[in-house]
Amino acid sequence: MEVTNNQRPAYMEFEGFSKEENEELNKAGIILGTLEQIKGWARSNSLWPLTFATACCGIEMMATGGADYDFDRFGVIFRASPRQADCVIVAGTITKKMAPVVRRLYDQMPEPKWVIAMGSCATAGGPYVRAYSVVKGVDQIIPVDVYIPGCPPSPPALMYGVNKLQEKIRLEAKGKKVR
């Protein structure tokens, strides 16, 4: 499976122009640059994640969406279909049986899309790293933008991670690539 990040180049890509024209446009940044920043601001403030909860981290994700730690105030509404989702929060252990499903869901999501790996199982295999049927980190299958450590990460940690992703979206809209 290809895991290159070839969907998101370091410079902003405008449709319909060649690579040289794109670079030219990137330098002249007053009107188009501001437009990109507005788009970045809009995208970051209404992130719609795909409901993708595998294991225990899923319960913490649900709790974050619940009444005490409200996710809705960040504009985050969980969508069931990948075609309508902006990002996917991979919460829980990914097993080798589940890996093709994750890849297919990621491919079904429209651009622009981001991935948050929540919890230590999705980051690197977690406590099950020595198991025979566990994929050691979801970044072996799909490119990940933000990693949230924890087992499970508490709702404030998840919100911090989502905020980090929002910052990343806004920074990338300004043309700076965030690692």
Binding site: T93, T95, M98, R130, A131, Y132
Partner: peptide, 14 residues
């Protein structure tokens, strides 16, 4: 089933 089979029983033997 088996999309979350993490091998707890095998891990427990070690």
């Amino acid at each position: 089933l088996g999309y979350l089979h993490r091998g707890t029983e095998k891990l427990a033997e070690d």
